[in-house]
Design a binder for these strands. Structure first.
Lengths: 249, 249
DNA sequence: TTTTATACGGCATTTTATTGCAACTTTAAC
DNA sequence: GTTAAAGTTGCAATAAAATGCCGTATAAAA
């Protein structure tokens, strides 16, 4: 993994949770704590975060409750959300995954659309409540602290009982060869179930994540029907994906 | 927990209550009183609060963090939460209802407690995620816009499968004669199921709601084991409740 | 005054930081 | 293709910080 890529991930984590522990970062990025420490120190000197004893906190840190107001790569995520909207039809039944990209997708859903939305993400569910014509169904389960999604066997069992037109999912890492991968095993179990429950699977994914991978696999790239990034569909960074019969937006 | 986070929480508490005791902070944050003292001293030297003998008081009164939380009858709700905490034991399995009083109860749960908490409320679930030793289980269902709880047949079915030591519930209206009543029929269905699922039912209720009623009934007053208000247990506004064999805190 | 509760400093333990160093990788020049 | 220089990474030893505990000092309360 490149240093630059790693530092982007660190910033991403900080933006997402407002705070991180160095030990967690080291484990997640599979590097020594020394390396993480050096990275964080560098980012601190670039004024991109604030290093504190044992970890780092976001510059705009206000309160733990505000962890959902995420601004990292916002423009890209908005672009993705706009493209993905084109797939939606009145009366549709969809699933929306957790993660900041999917949250942005939920936030930008057109108010006029009448939809039934399933989700496992608490922030997504709350966001969808702002859409008057959307019926929101949250699947139950143990709530994961990190991801703020319901997970565990209960959530997966609920998922096995449903079938939606479109499943809009995010991923931690994606690669044409290894497919969608994650750092967190629990999260993978949930995402697997989402893929199973969806007639068509739409991957929402900022280009930064392309050609990266991690420990646990959600699904093969062939399981994805449509991939949406902020890049134009013809961009050469998408070449390796275009080979699989995959619709790219 | 990072030192910065802890100090942030201290400032939050101070902003919210204008005055805090070091002993309370130590218990809530699960650190020694020495550490709290050092933190407070540091924050004092940064002019972020004023340290006094045994505690700290806020400098100014307006804080953006406090503005986000619900402030209606806050002091009363805090008093109720503190009283109700006495019922909790390590390893307990409880249910926490939605509503602002229950949310306050969730917010003030001591960090040291190891609990399994079921809930149908999204805000309560998110609040509980801040308690590192609490396992949070959110029951699934259609999400109600106003109450931000999961409801409908799905939620009620999940509830029928569980049995908790204590169910902490709120109510819209309560009256010794008519019991717990609500304006919203859907909400009543969920609350009924909660009462059924709880070995002991604890009603958290500000005195303002006493002796009021509405259209749909959750349960009779006899279904309640313990009632917690901000009033002293002997207060004469509680007379009509004392007649039922009802534990009053 | 006596009693109780809180504050403070010193100390030990644990956790985190820093530094120097060696192994390894990449880059660019020869 | 080889080689040197620069950059990156992990490890180990040492330094610093954070935390809890204890004894004593000081302040509030009875």
């Amino acid at each position: 993994m490149l240093k630059e890529e790693r530092q982007r991930m660190i910033l991403n984590e900080v933006a997402l949770h407002n705070r991180v522990l160095l030990t967690d970062l080291a484990e997640q990025l599979v590097v020594s704590i020394d390396t993480v420490r050096r990275d964080v120190k560098e980012l601190d000197s670039q004024q991109k975060l604030r290093k504190v004893h044992g970890g780092a906190i976001s510059l705009g840190f206000v309160s733990p409750a505000a962890a959902n107001t995420n601004t990292y790569a916002l423009e890209e995520k908005i672009e993705i959300a706009r493209k993905a909207q084109g797939l939606l039809r009145d009366g549709g039944v969809i699933f929306i995954d957790g993660g900041t990209t999917c949250l942005e997708f939920a936030r930008l859903l057109p108010e006029r659309l009448e939809l039934t939305c399933f989700t496992v993400s608490l922030p997504v569910a709350l966001q969808l409540l702002n859409k008057p014509r959307v019926k929101v169904i949250l699947l139950g389960g143990e709530v994961s602290r990190e991801a703020q999604i319901t997970s565990g066997s209960q959530a997966i069992r609920s998922l096995s009982g449903i079938r939606v037109d479109f499943g809009f999912i995010g991923t931690g890492y994606v690669d044409a060869l290894h497919g969608l991968t994650e750092f967190d095993w629990e999260v993978v179990q949930v995402k697997k179930a989402i893929v199973e429950a969806s007639r068509k699977v739409v991957l929402l994914c900022i280009s930064e994540k392309l050609n990266s991978q991690h420990r646990y696999r959600t699904c093969d790239i062939n399981a994805i029907n449509t991939m949406v990034t902020e890049l134009p569909p013809g961009h050469n960074r998408l070449n390796s994906f275009r080979e699989h019969q995959l619709h790219i937006l």
